[in-house]
């Protein structure tokens, strides 16, 4: 039981490693962005799962509820999601620009062209 109590972290780590693997193994820049997105989702999950209290309810004050989950990680992740999408958009815009200038978005071809 002690050991199984950490399963939320394991899920997070698996998700993070999937994202990490995509980032370091693929040469396509769009795929790298997708990998970063998955990695980011794992961080969101880590924060939210830490804030959960078993038996608690959503942190909106109402009568008849005693235990609330921790609202602080929710606030941090709420803003992080929207910031994440805008930075993703910025990355995609950079990719479009690279594509316009170099004509490719494969990393190894880009390095060849720069040589």
């Amino acid at each position: 039981m002690e050991l199984l109590g950490h399963y939320n972290y394991w899920i997070t780590i698996v998700l993070a490693m999937v994202g990490f693997y995509i980032v370091i193994s693929s040469h396509n820049l769009v795929k790298k962005i997708i990998g970063l997105n998955i990695f980011q989702a794992s961080v969101f999950l880590l924060y939210i799962s830490m804030g959960k209290i078993i038996g608690g309810s959503a942190p909106i004050i109402s009568e008849g509820t005693q235990v609330y989950s921790n609202p602080l990680p929710h606030v941090l992740i709420l803003t992080a999601i929207v910031v994440g999408v805008s930075t993703t958009a910025f990355g995609l815009a950079l990719i479009l620009k690279i594509r316009n200038v170099y004509g490719t978005i494969e990393e190894d071809e880009l390095q060849e062209l720069d040589r």
Binding site: N37, I48, L92
Partner: peptide, 26 residues
């Protein structure tokens, strides 16, 4: 996990905006 606000944002952002931008780029 009791994070209704976050779920809301994730559904709107991930389901709506990110997908559209990714498709546009691809």
């Amino acid at each position: 996990l009791d994070a209704v606000d976050v779920a809301f944002t994730e559904a709107a952002v991930g389901g709506g905006i990110t997908t559209v931008l990714l498709l546009a780029t691809i």
